[in-house]
Design a protein around this nucleic acid. Structure first.
Lengths: 236, 236
DNA sequence: ATAATGTTAGTGAGTGATCACTCACCAGGG
DNA sequence: CCCTGGTGAGTGATCACTCACTAACATTAT
């Protein structure tokens, strides 16, 4: 398992549960309705708490139709989750890092853009991400996939760029890359969780102000001497 | 709901599901076995995914015994969760903050102690905390309880102390308290999640080193001028 | 001391409801 | 006339939960 490549893993799971990964493949209107209903119900009740009966009713479809297309309840779950993981892994991870390096703007400004970008990505797909995160706690295959492919991919793709930022004094060079990544992700995800779960207590400002503060704390905490100069120079 | 006091809420829920909050009350050996088994199975499969049959089997008890004592499956869940929330809310939150103020040691040192303390608290009760966090996503009463009582309690109890730390220059005074708390909690919980879910990728150093880095990033990011002097003075 | 009685923990054998899933069958388009 | 999308009516398994009952012990009556 661990040694399998990303593409191999996607293919294996896709075959096993007959998940169709070809985006060009046609989808009936009813199939789309089923997927939408499934995202809603899985996110609301969790995989185990959701019934195929309810999903079918919400989709306006006979229950048997679900099994016609996805064979099992788990097949339906994976039809949602695997393509999402596969799509998130490559393109969505790459974009902000390229952003970071290609420009020579002050780190705290670039970080703000990156965080805005990430937050909107997560909020646009909040239900699906909630499903992935929660179910990965209970389905070891999903957890393993997230760890061995998404997380490692992310580390690999960002490693070189983070090293260059360290060299240029934009990031502290006394912290390992995974701590830098974990810190940034923790603060962003912490903000999003707060916003979605405990909005009244832990997320009370406007989004723009929140993002400015997150970026500010991160850059002060993990930025190198160059990044700190930029902050003071920029005023604000 | 929102206007109910903490104690009232605990009592209401406790009555409704006949949760026994008196710690002095006797517990049969079989009752303890049931609770232990329930924690294990709920944490492993989630509330919906767990069956009372499996819990009974693991506890070495007839299934009917569970219903004798806890009436329903949800009663069993709440018998685990409500006392834990009630106990966590008051004493466990207060301790580290008192710690923070009572001493005049450098902030980054005190933060390390606080984080160590918190991490061990969470790891000692990891299964139970996992249950609380996951199920609060699906049971609105639990979510409301966490938000309106635990979170607000935490804000109220720490508010005054955080203000004093700001006055003394140990914390930045341009960040609201909830951002300070959220940042610190995010980084600690992020570390613990990484450690428990994706250990190979995001938590690779010794615990002591990890904690030092977390405290370091936080104090640099959110500490006031005084705290930063302390860090430089301390060498390290 | 012992019999009678009440109380409580615990159980085996169910019960109806709901679960995921199957199958024979239909409708329509190439 | 087959092929695919779609369905109504089931099926056994499993679910949470009930109930009549026993065992053991404490309290009270005799």
């Amino acid at each position: 398992m661990t040694s399998k490549s990303w593409d191999e893993w996607v293919k294996t799971i896709a075959d096993e549960y007959e998940v169709n990964l070809d985006p060009a493949q046609r989808q009936t209107r009813k199939q789309k309705q089923i997927l939408e209903a499934a995202i809603h119900v899985f996110a609301e009740k969790g995989y185990s708490g959701a019934s195929t009966h309810e999903i079918a009713a919400r989709a306006g479809v006979a229950e048997a139709t679900i099994f016609k297309h996805y064979r099992t309840k788990k097949g339906l779950l994976l039809r949602l989750v695997v393509p999402a993981i596969a799509k998130v892994a490559a393109p969505y991870i790459a974009r902000p890092v390229l952003h970071l390096l290609e420009q020579d703007r002050p780190l705290h400004e670039v970080m703000q853009d990156v965080i805005v970008d990430r937050i909107h990505l997560v909020e646009d797909n909040w239900k699906l991400i909630k499903i992935i995160l929660v179910e990965s706690l209970f389905h070891p295959e999903l957890r393993e996939a997230l760890q061995n492919h998404v997380a490692k991919n992310l580390m690999a793709m960002t490693g070189e760029k983070l090293d260059r930022l360290k060299e240029r004094g934009k990031l502290r060079n006394d912290l390992p890359n995974y701590v830098l990544l974990r810190s940034a992700m923790s603060m962003v995800i912490g903000y999003l969780l707060a916003r979605n779960v405990f909005p009244e207590v832990f997320a009370r400002s406007e989004e723009e102000a929140e993002i400015r503060m997150i970026a500010d704390v991160f850059v002060r905490g993990a930025g190198g001497p160059k990044a700190r100069e930029e902050m003071e120079g920029g005023g604000e």
